[in-house]
Amino acid sequence: MATLAETEAPQAKAAELSYLVGAWRAFGLQWALYRHIWNGTVFTSVFLPILYMISIGIGVGSYIDPGATGGLTYAEFIAPGLICSVAVMMLGNDMVYPVFGGYHEWGGGYLHQRSTPLRPVDILNGHLAYAVIFRPFTSCTVVAIVLAFFGVYTSWWAALAVIAAFGVSAALAPWLHAWCSSLKNDAMLNSVYRFAIMPISLFSGVFFPAEQMPGFLQPLVWISPLWHGTELARAATAGAATALPPVAHLAYLVALAIGGWFLARRVIARRLSF
């Protein structure tokens, strides 16, 4: 029988398995799945934000005086937020049910990956690579390009909004992963949408300036990665001034991403050791 190169010297090979290679191999599953489901996600990832733009941005926007949104037209105001919201909505697709299902025989992704040379951290990184890198850079890019036809950008810097969306995704994804990995009951998955995805999408300064919210809710806005991302994206698409220096917004997103990753790594290692 022809021997496979990898099984020849498995000790050496597997021991050297770098995070990058491990993540890439685990990503293979997400990619194969994506080829089956991509058409089902086009609505949420591309059409829904566009429909929001038409209904709210233009429809409701026609009743709004630009003075209320810092001199921007309402469509200009919400466009960057919509791009970043897509990242959050995609996480709702990719980091909730698929994570929970990974540990169960009906989904089983993580369980069968676990019986291969992949380590729990590789399984985590593979899934994150899909949700945080692949998804935002495809979906958010498409949305950003379509929104350009609405004439809501002031310069080519608008392209950076996609990077901001990626930042939002990176900051939020590991936390969702850790949360959904800890859930014992699938009935609780709804609460992830209800108490995380939805409030974050609606109250992060996407549809109205966050300062409008009552003072006691302001801290919730500050912790929301979508708010930080939207501030950055709005600076990119409309040249608006950010609430904090851009570096501060960026630093927060990076800190959240790193902290979340360490947490998620601990949780998945625990869940996949029996």
Partner: peptide
């Protein structure tokens, strides 16, 4: 310590 190496042969 060698989980991945072992699993690569299982």
């Amino acid at each position: 310590t060698d989980g991945p190496a072992i699993r690569s042969r299982l």
